[in-house]
Each structure stands twice: as structure tokens, then as C-alpha cells.
Nucleic acid binder design. Structure first.
Lengths: 217, 217
DNA sequence: TCAACTTGTTAGAACCATCTAACTTACTTT
DNA sequence: AAAGTAAGTTAGATGGTTCTAACAAGTTGA
């Protein structure tokens, strides 16, 4: 029996909900995964057919022992990947969760095993690899100029190297320290640059974009 | 325009083939991806519709500039992931390639960017993280007993801790150093253990399986 | 208790990626 | 140049996942 990626998702969702709620209903899955209730229903039938859950008409959903084992394994992958993305790579939480949720279905067992060991290694307190890496990454991250980002990339403004009147102008556009920005598009030679700040779309000259230092997110 | 994962695969294949062959035909893709020629044909139509390739009836396939850009980006993900799996995690080549090929479609740009930096960091010669990790992993890997593997796991026999007559018996079953093994199934308490060696299926007592040290693959 | 609301079920449509099978075109060999 | 083989095309079937829409069952509160 090999589960489709889709069914893996459903099963994992049921398992996770079950951790907090003791009783799982179709509606919970709808809320968790964002699918329509009919799609959930369909998936439940398939999971039941595989003996991974039990589900009485109009009743609660119970995960079987077999189902719990399968789900726990999937979730472990999810957890490990998310931890790596969020705590090691320092990707934002939402992205880390999303990526983990996708990749968990595709990483093979043997790769995952090695990967887990690798993370275990990084977390060992007598290793300073993690600290070295953080130091390295911070230098890297701090150095980007807004003009160097590509369309679709997001960042947070770290500092602005401009005279006062220029800073004033940036200020009035919502461009100030700590503000998240996203590049919408760039003209062929990077001039002008179109970006998103506080839900406004702003167009900057390349020379202006070069004054703004960002940390890529 | 967002490409389906399937079409991403086709486009990437075309791009890769194009690196070596200068001229790409549908047959090359069939060989590369293992799909039927009609499926390839169908995909080609969709790629052409998106302006990523040009394809005359019964003719050659040419990747457009736009297509090459998209493909190169996908391939870069593939390459980086495969490198990490193979050279850092030391997963076997085939698995590394397969996992990379799946995951490349799911890792987000921002996670990938961080991930690339992380690998760059590991490769820096003034960091000894990679060496430390290898040392750590080798100790780990050497320690597994055959009895500890789970069904489906594969390993290579590293050493056998048994008396001569026992070694003789193992020997006659094809169980000897350097031999790849795979656990087929384990009875509830791990006794007996069913495994695959040299295309034979062998059943071992738990006590016997504990004498055999393997490196997980 | 029954009306209103929430939740669950079913049937069937749409979409996508793959396949088989029958066919057409292009290339190769003699 | 004709015949045979390899490659490409098309139509239609299948399987999987999601959706909408209509309906059924359960729950809640006045």
C-alpha cells in the first residue's frame, strides 16, 4: 500500500488535529487544509478503505493504529524539515511550514535519516557549526541592496544611506527601517524598480534603490 | 504563468538534453524521463503554448530564451539539492538524484536562497564544519546492527561479530562484508527478520541479526 | 418542538497527466 | 525509388483530486 501525497496530507492533518482535540470531525479537516467538505469526504473514504481511519456516517473520525503509525512518520518528516528551515536557515515561519508540508512527501526515507542525523549534529552543544553559520549568514544578509533583489523577492529594510531630504522623501513613501518590501518588477536594466511597501506600489530609480539596504527574507 | 510540476520536469529535461546534444527530439525526452511518446507530445504542446519552447510538427524542439531562463532556475535547484544530498549527506547517487528531482519543484525561492548560502558556508575552506560532520556521521553509520534496521531499509554489511562456524553459515547464505542487504519484514518482536541478500530471501533469528554490523544506505 | 443553522453526503463536472491504440510522417537501407 | 523501420501525432480512455450543487442529517436556541 502506497498512499498518494494527497491522502498523506489528509492523514497527517487528522493525526495533528487528534493531538489537540481528542475528537476529529470532517469540519476540522476542512479548516485545517482549506479544502471543501466534499473533497474531504472523498479522501476519508479512501483512507478508510486502506484501514487507516474509521469513520461512521455523520460521525467522528478515528485514526487506527496503523494510520497513526503512518501519520506519525510523515509528521516527523514535516517537523524535522520545518525545524531546519525555520531554526537553521531562518526562513520565515510561514514559508518554513509550507515548504515542509510539500517536501515531506518527497524526501526518501534514506535521505531523511541522514538529514536527521545532520541536524542532530548541528544541535550538539560541543559543535560550534551552528554559531559559525549564523555569523556567516548575518553578514551575508545585511549586505544586500534593494536594487540587487529580483522580482518576487522579499526583504526587510535595514538601513538607508541617503541625505536628510532623500530620507524624508523615502519616509513619505513608507520606506523606513523595519518595513517589509517586495520587488514587483524591474525594467530591463533595473531602472526603474517597482516595489510593494505597506500595500502601496512604488516605483524607484535604480540610484534610489541602491541607497536602501535590506535583509532578504 | 505558473508551470505545473510535470511541465517543469519536461522543460528541465529539454534543457538538460540541450546542454549535451544541441538538438532535442521527442525521443530524447522519452528516454530521459521514461514516459510514453504520446505523453511527451502532449506536454510539448503545453510548453509551446506557454512560449517556453518551439516545436514544429515532426521537427526538432527548440527552447526559447524564456524557456531557458525558467529551466535554468529549476535546474539550479536540482543541482544544489543533489549536491547536498550526495556530497554532504552522502546518500547514494541514485537516491540523491531522485529526491532532488522531486523536491526541486517544491522548495520555495526564499528557502532555496538560504539553503544555497548554507551550502556555500559548508564549502568554505576555512570552516571545518564539513569535516566535523563527516567524522560524526561515520561513527553513527558504523554503529548500526542489522537487527536495528526497519523493513524497507537498506544497508551494506560492514563487519560480522561471530565465531568461525557462525561466520561460515553466514557465508553460505551470502552474508559477507561489503554485501548490500535489505530488510523485507520483521516479525512483531523482531524475530525472525526477513532480508534480501544477492536476490535471495533469507530469514534470520534476531540473535543472529544482532551479530551483523551494517552501514545504512 | 420546530426553525434556522451547521455539518456531512452524494452525484456529477472539470482538470490534469498519464496511458493505449491506430495512424501518419520521416528516415534508412537496399 | 520502394519497403521497412523509427519517430511523431491524434483520439480517446483511465485514474486521481478537486470542485459545485443539491440534498440529508444533526444541533441549537427561542
Amino acid at each position: 500500500m502506497t498512499l498518494s501525497h494527497s491522502l498523506e496530507d489528509y492523514l497527517e492533518a487528522i493525526w495533528v488535529i487528534n493531538q489537540n482535540k481528542k475528537v476529529v470531525r470532517a469540519k476540522d479537516i476542512v479548516d485545517y487544509l482549506g479544502y471543501r467538505v466534499s473533497s474531504v469526504n472523498n479522501a476519508l473514504k479512501n483512507l478508510a478503505k486502506e484501514g487507516l481511519i474509521e469513520h461512521e456516517r455523520y460521525g467522528y473520525i478515528e485514526i487506527t493504529e496503523k494510520g497513526a503509525n503512518v501519520a506519525a512518520e510523515i509528521y516527523k518528516k514535516h517537523e524535522t524539515l520545518e525545524l531546519f528551515f525555520a531554526d537553521v536557515l531562518h526562513v520565515d515561519e510561514e514559508t518554513a511550514a509550507r515548504d515542509a508540508c510539500n517536501i515531506e512527501h518527497y524526501i526518501s526515507d534514506s535521505t531523511f535519516r541522514r538529514f536527521s542525523e545532520f541536524i542532530e549534529f548541528l544541535k550538539k552543544e560541543n559543535s560550534n557549526c551552528y554559531e559559525e553559520w549564523r555569523k556567516y549568514a548575518e553578514n551575508k544578509g545585511g549586505k544586500m541592496k534593494l536594487s540587487q533583489l529580483k522580482p518576487g523577492q522579499k526583504g526587510v529594510i535595514k538601513s538607508i544611506e541617503a541625505n536628510e531630504s532623500m530620507k524624508q522623501r523615502f519616509n513619505s513613501m513608507g520606506i523606513l527601517q523595519g518595513e517589509p518590501v517586495e520587488i514587483i518588477k524591474k525594467a530591463p536594466l533595473g531602472d526603474p524598480v517597482m516595489l510593494n511597501v505597506k500595500n502601496y506600489q512604488i516605483s524607484l530609480r535604480k540610484t534610489e534603490a541602491e541607497m536602501i539596504n535590506v535583509e532578504v527574507v
